[in-house]
Design a protein around this nucleic acid. Structure first.
Lengths: 351, 351
DNA sequence: TAATGTAATGCAAACGTTTGCAAAAATCAA
DNA sequence: TTGATTTTTGCAAACGTTTGCATTACATTA
């Protein structure tokens, strides 16, 4: 193939009548190489167009200066934002990031974990699939003491470093907000309970109802992948019979926005007849009419904390005594917008 | 560090009293290893928890089974969608993808190109910075005959494989559409002209005007980074004096949506008083009120073509005779929505 | 000038694979 | 059985770095 132009430190060494070790040290600014030699070496490196081979260095050092990231999909606002932060922060530390998407498929996740291990990443950051309940495929990383961090969608009962949102409080806050605005019959559209964060949000929802002496009705909670299609279908069920609910707490913004669309179609007014709260504070919540109340998860903060924690793990890797797991909780904040404005009318509404 | 649990093919070989070469071949399904040995080897590999070291293999083979991708940012709809496609497709071919963001900074782009080269990626896919006009930092890849593909934001006057949208036709179609809907005074908000695709769209805009005997006025074209803030500021200028335009062709959807927001604030009705066309067919165009007409760029098709082209380059790499550059153009399609509905009123409008 | 200490460089092994070539083992025909 | 094939395995070098240890060059002091 190519024109054999790949220069190595050996070429530099020969050119300069130095040994490869000296060249290597010079390029790495090793203190016991004289300034003069360093200079010569670097000049020659530039002149020859030398490019370090990270594979070789990685093999020798047993570290790749590369971090793996697995998220369900990078096209969703929340993971996308976090990926961006992680990527940019990591770059500052001189690390590359291999971003992978599991597409919410357990099998793909397993496969990715293995190839990332093969790539000898120096750390792995994961937000799991909706359906990951067995985490043993991550054992390789634990067993080999390679930094492993989960964020947002984190494992239950698997000892590991975790950075998550305050989902219980999120669910509680969203529901309480609806109640404060006068809602008495609140539907909750949740993700599947295989994913623990939804369990917590449901639990927050439930407690808010209890605290306000409102009944928790099983028929008022939906568990489904939070896609547009599913949201639409849920609406068809919800509005197939009266009484309509007067509030909906949706566990993501896609769902919330879709519900609004449906409401427009069937002439249910938001917020007058129905109040809606979404989750994640996706920027789309601001551009729809009316703007949707949502729960901000501080993705920037979460991303920064992930990188900080990762770097701690990496630097403390030698002292294997440090606890390699802990749970860190990022706060949430409810952003009230028009979709939950005003008080609901006394009598409620009907078809 | 770790507990020295890293098993290698040497361990397998010793355990089985075979040579490492046999083990290596067995694991790679080399045809002249007997089925029996292959079986034994694979079983033992599993038993020992062997994980191939991609770095070592990469060093030896001079290929990393990894592709680099540089995009301005993965949080924007178009590059995000394409990245997703590329990632998923590449996975099928057994390649990893290192996704990097230049954040539209030229210096970062240069740095990324270098580290990706160091990582010895087997190919590089790029959508450049808005401000990249010198492409010499990509020479390393060309010189070493490593597959290099640009998409969407592609270089001008730099011989390389290019897959781009039909931006001239896009600009032309969007403008013609506005004219057909009755607009006579059309503002165009373009990206900076350092990025060639905007040059082409402007040129399409211009020709559409000419063809319809409408004057091209310099004061009616804005060149700016297409952010929300800039869009808002542009609106302040545009609507600071009468007559208002009756149509705006914005070169991205963020801008189009922001304009609509501004119009609502100052009580300009869309589409009655002003018609708006965006670009990229971001899903947000569908959820705003009114939905925004936009130009679909078929990101899925583009992503698939990128991967296809990449694979061609990789497999034909040996035969360095194949032309390593060419231009492929992905069609566009105007998606008409409410923001350009109806005919504009005869007399036009004013403050 | 010799002795001593320090600063700078070199040697060679190692990281875990793959692969061309040579050698051994198995198979077959006579 | 022997020799000729064919199938299967092994040897050893190579990929481009880094690093512990040994060695050389230089500077300093007596």
């Amino acid at each position: 193939m190519s024109k054999r132009t790949e220069k190595t430190i050996v070429d530099i060494a020969e050119e300069l009548k130095l040994s490869v070790s000296t060249v290597s040290r010079a390029l790495n600014d090793n203190p016991n190489i004289s300034a003069r030699t360093k200079d010569k070496v670097k000049k020659m490196a530039r002149k020859l167009g030398y490019r370090p081979n990270a594979l070789a260095a990685g093999l020798r050092n047993n570290k790749s200066k590369t971090i793996g990231l697995i998220v369900p999909r990078i096209s969703m606002f929340f993971p996308a934002t976090i990926s961006t932060i992680i990527q940019n922060k990591l770059q500052e530390y001189g690390y590359n990031l291999i971003i992978c998407q599991s597409n919410d498929s357990y099998d793909q996740e397993v496969a990715l974990v293995n190839t990332l291990y093969s790539a000898r990443v120096d750390g792995l950051v994961v937000s799991t699939t909706l359906y990951t309940t067995d985490f043993s495929h991550f054992d390789v990383f634990k067993d080999n003491n390679i930094p492993l961090i989960f964020f947002d969608r984190v494992p239950k009962d698997y000892n590991v470093k975790v950075i998550k949102g305050d989902d219980y409080v999120g669910g509680y806050t969203a529901t309480t907000h609806l109640i404060e605005r006068g809602c008495k019959d609140i539907v909750h559209i949740s993700g599947p309970l295989t994913c623990n964060l939804y369990v917590e949000r449901v639990s927050g929802y439930k407690h808010a109802l209890q605290e306000n002496k409102l009944p928790f009705k099983k028929t008022r909670v939906f568990y489904q992948e939070l896609t547009r299609d599913n949201a639409w279908q849920a609406c068809e069920k919800i509005f197939a019979q009266t009484p309509y609910p007067d509030g909906i707490f949706a566990s993501n913004d896609t769902t919330a926005i879709t519900i609004m669309e449906y409401c427009r179609k069937i002439n249910v007014r938001v917020p007058e007849d129905l109040k809606i709260v979404g989750y994640s504070n996706d920027p789309r919540t601001e551009i729809v009419t009316p703007p949707v109340t949502s729960v901000d998860q501080y993705p920037t903060m979460m991303g920064e904390r992930v990188v900080a924690a990762l770097m701690e793990l990496i630097t403390s890797q030698a002292s294997a005594t440090a606890p390699r797991y802990s749970q860190e909780i990022i706060p949430i904040q409810l952003i009230a917008r028009e979709s939950t404005a005003g008080m609901v009318k006394a009598g409620g509404k009907k078809k």
